[in-house]
Amino acid sequence: MSVMTAPAATGARVQAVPWRKLAWVGWRQHRLALGGVAALLAGLCLWMLVSGLQMRSALSSFGLNACTPLTATSCSTQETVFINDYYSGAQVVAGVLTVIPVLIGVLAGVPVVARELETGTFRLSWTQGAGRTRWLLARLVLLAVAVTAGAWVVSAVFSWYDHPMVQLGQDSPLAPQVFGLTGVAFAAWTLAAFAISVCAGALIRRVIPAIVAAIAAWSGLLMLTVFWLRAHYQAPLTGMGLINSTTGTGAGTPWVLTQWWIQPGGTPASQSEIAGLSSQLRQAGGLPTAQAVQQWFAEQGYVKYFTYQPATRFWTFQLTEAGWLLALSLLLAAATVWLIRHRAT
């Protein structure tokens, strides 16, 4: 045994392995997942293109694209028929799209760390010259950019597809069923799903349990946002009377949060009171359109109040949501890097 010498780092800087090579390795090892994601997204885009074109040809055959404004009485019957025919289809598309971010995120994100830990290959990959931090960062950036860009394309196609519904005032651009699928929100939710998945994989270290945990965490976050957080990005406004007439049709249908009636006496009307009045109206043979109801209630001295987010706030809301989701994703990525460097062995 030789004489012990005090450890003294030579300090010689080792030239790092280029990012380009590390990114190639990331692509090579995750190309199957990326191919699956691409095929899924391409299928969705094709579906939306075909049904979008069908919807548009129906729109012109109904003569609805000649209607100005779209709410003109001459158009309303045609509009009702069109909506009856196509709105449920649009809802199915929106419903399917809602779960796509977490599907993509889990598919691309969970295996990044969890599969290495589960199969033991981390002992191969993390002891190579590049080091585990650069190894991880290269593939995180590559995969994050790929899934975010793919999701953005899908949401752009959806925005085009759903445009007639927004135009007809059927969907508010802020409504929960479409807001998260348009603008930059869909891409941001996909990025967040990816980051949650990678982090869950690093924490749980097994693929299947990490998938379950990531889906649960992402869905919980989405619920919390849709049912509570999103309505608070800006203080809601209060309006009275007919919803569309208050906020103007040009800007699009507002997102109504709550609504209530005020009695002639000035106090809020109870549910049963409103139900009673509505049945009286039906017995009187009144038309069940919103406008007629409004008018009839007004004649009885009732006024409708509602809180809402105007459609003009669309981009403010989009950027707010994308902003905090991006911040969350970066935080989770940093947490994953920390875990990999310090704990995961």
Partner: peptide
């Protein structure tokens, strides 16, 4: 004298772990 796990150490140390993953 290179601390184990540093970039210089990783560069010059090759490891065949148990069961050769």
């Amino acid at each position: 004298g290179e601390p184990a796990g540093s970039s210089a150490a990783l560069d010059g140390v090759a490891y065949v772990a148990q069961e050769a993953p």
